[in-house]
Amino acid sequence: MRARDLILGAAVGGLIAVSGAWAQGGKTYGEKLGFMPVSDVNKSMIGGTGDVQATLDGSTLTVTGEYSGLMGEPTMVSLHEAPMGMAGPKFGEFAVDGGTDGTFEGTVELSDEQIQKLDNNEVYVVVNTERNEDGELRAWLVADDYEMTPWMASTN
């Protein structure tokens, strides 16, 4: 394990503790941040790792996260709606300051329809960077009590 990962792990632990406190105010979501779709063509542009957590309090979604090892300077965090594993339109964003290692925090007001999508695990977060306008890292906001459910049962 690299030193950077150890530091990130410690940061993640701290934030999980914080989000646990926030969880008293609403439902919590989160997931590891992974690469945007990557191939041999764009792999030199994609890097890093991180985590995202989110808490819904009424219609206010508070999104926090941390990242490290980005290949480009972060520009913003955007929120999108799409079923797990699919791509969908952006409906919110907030700015990110800092270098290729850092943290972010922002709030987004959700409509009733977007709250329903969040409840269905159909909202994802993208960390956009200068080198990756379509994003470098991504994670679905998956409910903390998520268990894999059969897609066909849910679509029938």
């Binding site: 997931e31 590891k32 992974g34 690469f35 990557v38 191939s39 764009n42 790792t49 991504r138 998956v142």
Partner: peptide
Amino acid sequence: ADRWWFEMPGTDG
């Protein structure tokens, strides 16, 4: 076919 891969949602990587 051209392919681009990513972590499966809901698996924490």
